[in-house]
Design a protein around this nucleic acid. Structure first.
Length: 487
DNA sequence: GGTCAAGGCCAT
DNA sequence: ATGGCCTTGACC
């Protein structure tokens, strides 16, 4: 009795096609359009200790558009106010740090401009005190930094939660409420300035966007650039259109990688027919659900194998990652379907059929009832947050690229992809959410809940697997069978 | 009234 | 000329 698809084991799926290995990989490239490297990498809290982007000295606050030290603030002010002209005696590429910053004012001023200090923030009338038009920009930047801190906090919580394997109780109200002010490039003053030092900058500095982005070392400047390129964000709409210019390129790639539902449903019906033909009777409700889960799992593996970044990994690493996260991806797929397409009180099956949650609650055993209840609660949380298609696409990748999986050969690559996906998601939530400013943190917390739910689901299926109450010859069985070997 | 990013002052 | 500290004043 063979199922319609012959690729019923993970090894089988991998042996079906010849692996095309691409040695040239550069996941960073997609991000250069919207993110600077400093905006993307936040491996530890030390990175948040601010250093002056010009000389590396201790930052004393926002000055002329960015966070700088007191001395560079004074230097920039004197240069602009007094129309200074400097000459570099070297090749205009002097290194500027705390010890050398006095040596070449030409290169120091160049660096000031390159990192984003604004000429127009120096007042022509020399009026003291008050506030300038950069206020919202500073606020925006602070919100971004707060989000980064929250991200680190959430990541730590998630790691702790995963290690202890305890049920996660979220307390999202304890996370600082963040401001999310919008930056309008039209509000930025852009007076022409004819100071010699400024003209010298205009002549010598790179003007194309790519170079400007590479030079961009602070998020205020980056936000201004990004908005100048893609236009101000529309906070009210959360459309799915992949044409929308505000969706970072990488997320468009993710959306294109979605599993194909129609093929999946076709496979499910074929499997159910086979099951019926083999056993000469209609499959039980549990068997049907098991077949659906198995086929969904096949489609998830197929999706992963052909996905951006994942297909670049060595096959051994791909298998390790899939063995580690299959149940989480499975639960995520079921939950995201309920959030995006389901109805209250309903259970949207993978086959496209609609069930009732109350039926499950009244006919299932205690474990399944508990699973059902926790799953429903999580669906409700995602719905409250109005999590959209793009965000689920990112979450799928976050789960798949888990650098904490043991003995990964390409651990650093996996870690780098996860960090970049986190960055993309953070940027998206920050740009598209007007009310829930700690949206990203919420998503991280829900991810922990998803993880603990998947462990429960896996244990339940494992129990069923051991008791032999499940259809044979399928990928789900293989995953459950391998459970003890891989974990 | 507190905050904080402007400009100002002045010892080095 | 530099840079640490002080004063100012719009905005919250």
């Amino acid at each position: 009795c063979l199922p319609p698809e012959s690729k019923k084991s993970l090894a089988g799926i991998y042996s079906l096609r010849e692996e095309i290995r691409t040695e040239q990989r550069n996941p960073q490239i997609l991000f250069y359009m919207f993110f600077s490297s400093s905006d993307m990498n936040f491996p530890c809290e030390v990175d948040l200790e601010e250093q002056c982007p010009v000389c590396g000295d201790k930052v004393s606050g926002y000055h002329y558009g960015i966070l700088t030290c007191e001395s560079c603030k004074g230097f920039f002010k004197r240069t602009v106010q007094n129309n200074k002209t400097y000459v570099c005696v070297e090749n205009q590429q002097c290194k500027i740090d705390t010890s050398k910053r006095k040596r070449c004012p030409f290169c120091r001023f160049q660096k000031c401009l390159n990192v984003g200090m604004r000429l127009e923030a120096v007042r022509a009338d020399r009026m003291r005190g008050g506030r300038n038009k950069f206020g919202p920009m500073y606020k925006h930047d602070r919100a971004l930094k707060q989000q980064k801190k929250a991200l680190i906090q959430a990541r730590r919580l998630r790691i702790e939660s995963n290690q202890k394997d305890v049920t996660f109780t979220s307390n999202i109200h304890s996370i600082a409420i963040l401001h999310n002010t919008k930056l309008n490039p039209n509000q930025l003053p852009s007076q022409p300035c004819n100071s010699p030092a400024v003209l010298q900058h205009q002549i010598t500095s790179p003007t194309n966007w790519a170079m400007k982005l590479e030079n961009c070392s602070n998020s205020v400047e980056l936000a201004a650039l990004a908005e100048a390129i893609i236009g101000p964000h529309h906070t009210s709409s959360r459309s799915i259109s992949t044409q929308s210019p505000r969706i970072p390129q990488l997320e468009i790639e993710f959306l294109h990688c979605d599993p194909h539902d129609l093929q999946l449903q076709k496979n499910i019906f074929s499997c159910l027919q086979q099951e019926q033909a083999c056993r000469h009777r209609e499959p039980s409700t549990f068997s049907s659900v098991y077949v659906m889960a198995d086929q969904l799992l096949c489609s998830i593996v197929e999706w992963a194998r052909t996905s951006i970044f994942f297909k670049e990994l060595k096959v051994s690493d791909q298998m390790k990652l899939l063995h580690s996260c299959w149940s989480e991806l499975l639960v995520l797929e079921i939950i995201s379907r309920q959030v995006l397409y389901g109805t209250d009180g309903g259970l949207l099956l993978i086959s496209g059929q609609q069930g009732e949650l109350s039926y499950v609650a009244s006919h299932a055993g205690p474990t399944l009832v508990s699973l059902n209840q926790r799953g429903t609660e999580l669906v409700e949380k995602f719905r409250m947050l109005k999590v959209d298609h793009q965000e689920f696409a990112c979450i799928r990748f976050l789960i798949l690229f888990a650098p904490d999986v043991k003995e990964l050969e390409e651990h650093r690559f996996v870690e780098s992809v996860q960090q970049q996906v986190e960055g993309a998601l953070l940027k998206y939530t920050l740009a598209s959410s007007s009310q829930s400013c700690n949206r990203f943190t919420c998503l991280q917390l829900y991810l922990s809940e998803l993880h603990s739910l998947s462990i429960l689901a896996e244990d339940y299926l494992y129990y069923k697997h051991l008791s032999g109450e499940v259809p044979c010859n399928n990928l789900l069985n293989e995953m459950l069978h391998a459970k003890c070997c891989w974990t």
